[in-house]
Design a protein around this nucleic acid. Structure first.
Lengths: 379, 379
DNA sequence: TCAACATAGTTCATAATATAAACTATAGAG
DNA sequence: CTCTATAGTTTATATTATGAACTATGTTGA
């Protein structure tokens, strides 16, 4: 059984990378004796490993690292169809994966997922130990217990206890999370921004998702509704504001999402495919340029609001490369930068990143990894 | 000397109001024995007091409360001229106050403040104990150490170590904070929203200030720039966007601040005073109505962005009653509610509150009170 | 080559802090 | 007036961190 002290060591090594016992003691404000004892336990349990000594003056220090193979996690993304199930290690590396149809019927869905988990579990074999937990990312609202999906329009779910069902059938602890939240929590645990306590992630696909880490913790809001950028009021000129499925008009997602861009293209008599539209814009087609510019600039305006209110160190924007490299990405960046207070580090604040196909699934796996690294009371 | 356990008790009682030892043990997840011992220490040191027993079935429980007179704090507001210095107790009640001219010259300013503190200290007498600390609220950026003012345009300060100067001359621990931050931290410690972990405060005077509590902690952002709502890009129609002192155009404060309203009135040939303008609007004067409606609606739009991104449980809006009760307040509320996703609790989410003259000063005093209640490692 | 030095990490006696379980205190209910 | 329910205390004990002395293992420079 691990204590709070053990989890402190694991958290620090995960966040700040390999460090020696002495460095850990300094960073955590603990005595060398305490760190030494805790590390001994973790080494004995094969959770940590020692790396090659670092030579300086005096006795060389031995960096300690969390062993990637100390735990195996399942991550499930229901963000899109097909659903994706991945097997990752504690560093977030995907070792195996499966795709399966995303069933809206709950029982069918759970059965299919459990079958996939069973298959990945067999592939893992017994020599490397058993699975430690399951995480699920889905596009919708999740209750505070991280077990129940309160609402998911894409799947037609309301108050669905998918966490309870999965954990009962697999015997594994299971966590459910909103897709954008899973994405940023994965980024925080596995990604390059993991030492930053304040950053945001935005993804632009059919819809728009956004999540933010503040003071090192996920910003959920009082009712779990934080980060609802896609319904930010961007088009204020009511003559041009389109109605949104939320009931309001002029929401960001009515102009900047892929769905909205496709709709605008169709209205203009252009092909609705993003690829073709991007090519037309690159070739100078005025209508295509106008649609994509308006979409990107709107996205940039919303991003500027985010930056002004929350002041993240970075905003990771996940976006189709065709849009990123064209006028959409250009307008997004330009509009953002022209509407925020000049800060020393404002250049390079926006980090474009490709849509890796397993981003959501490995983010979901990170939910289970967190439990292993931060402990039951952990973040 | 108080330990972490003692501060846990104090924090809980401060946040959740008086509770018995048993209730504390339950809430904090500690044993009754531990709470009993910690409470004994705090009673012996006259930091806590026992209230009248509450009878149920079984032995009556004895609610414990933080003694207001356990510490005396100084709060200084440099938010406006004149500067305000208050003497408060641990509950935030103002027991004495002074006003003095706000000197821009640092040495003069520090000397005047120290003289005022000395006078309030004498008035306190020796029987009630000495002062515990000083807090300062000012309109500007403050370094992370809460000692140095990095920039304050109103006073013309840059990299001014006012915290160090004050603490050296008074011998008291001193904390500096941005005015909006001091306001919300005071609200969190002393106010009615103190049990809410997610809320925002906006104040509208010459400028516009905004601060947010998230996960129970102040949202500072990566560079201390969080809550800069006043430079949110609200007027996107560049034909009508006014230039802002920040260098951009169309910032919120170019339309919604009292200064901006006065300017707009002057351009329209109307009196620039808020009171007269509000009266004209109430009487139906079209230009006055238009100016105030536009200002309030812009404020509401920015508030909607805040709510969509951060999802606070409440937004406290501090505003001149003349504006609050007129079309400005109406437009603000209407525009906010029409641009946020319908949430069960969205009605009553905006709480208007009067501009108490000592709000900023007692918020500043709360900075020092926090140290007493949360301890050196506290929030 | 070897003593001097510097830093990393361990050992062990001790201090601080929490816990569990039994105990006392103080009421209302029947 | 006893029974019962709940609040709070006592005490022996377990857990966890600490400080200081100690060992380990290298570099440095004469």
């Amino acid at each position: 059984m691990l204590s709070t002290g053990h989890y402190l060591i694991l958290s620090s090594l995960s966040r700040n990378g390999p460090e020696s016992r002495s460095e850990l003691a300094l960073r955590l404000g603990m005595s060398k004796a305490a760190v030494s004892g805790l590390v001994r336990d973790l080494l004995k349990q094969d959770i940590l490993c020692e790396q090659a000594p670092v030579h300086g003056s005096g006795r060389p220090s031995v960096p300690l690292a969390v062993r990637a193979e100390a735990a195996w996690l399942i991550g499930i993304s229901l963000q899109d169809d097909p659903a994706i199930v991945v097997l990752t290690d504690l560093h977030g590396t995907v070792h195996d994966r499966m795709e399966l149809p995303r069933h809206a019927d709950l029982d069918t869905c759970v059965a299919a997922l459990c079958a996939a988990i069973g298959q990945l579990r067999e592939g893992l074999g017994t020599a490397r130990g058993d699975l430690s937990g399951v995480g699920v990312a889905l596009p919708g609202f999740v209750a505070n217990d991280r077990q129940t999906c309160l609402a998911c329009t894409a799947l037609g779910w309301r108050d669905v206890d998918i966490g309870g069902l999965l954990s009962k059938r697999t015997g594994l602890p299971t966590w459910i999370e909103n897709d954008a939240n899973a994405l940023i929590l994965g980024e925080q645990l596995f990604g390059t921004l993991r030492s930053s306590p304040d950053f945001s992630v935005i993804f632009i696909s059919h819809g728009i998702g956004c999540a933010t880490i503040v003071n090192g913790r996920l910003l959920r809001g009082s009712a779990g509704g934080a980060g609802e950028m896609s319904h930010a009021p961007i088009v204020t000129d009511m003559a041009h504001a389109l109605p949104c499925r939320c009931g309001n008009r002029g929401c960001l997602e009515t102009v900047a999402s892929l769905l909205a861009i496709g709709n605008a293209a169709r209205r203009a008599g252009l092909p609705a495919g993003i690829g073709e539209l991007a090519r037309l814009a690159a070739a100078g087609q005025p209508e295509a340029l106008s649609i994509l510019h308006h979409a990107g600039a709107s996205m940039g305006l919303a991003t500027a609001h985010l930056i002004q209110l929350v002041d993240p160190s970075h905003v990771v924007v996940m976006l189709d490369p065709q849009l990123r490299d064209g006028i959409y990405g250009h307008a997004l960046q330009r509009e953002t930068e022209s509407h925020i207070l000049r800060r020393p580090a404002s250049r390079g604040m926006i980090l474009f990143r490709d849509f890796e196909p397993d981003s959501f699934a490995s983010g979901a796996a990170s939910l289970a990894a967190r439990y292993f690294i931060f402990g039951p009371d952990g973040v």
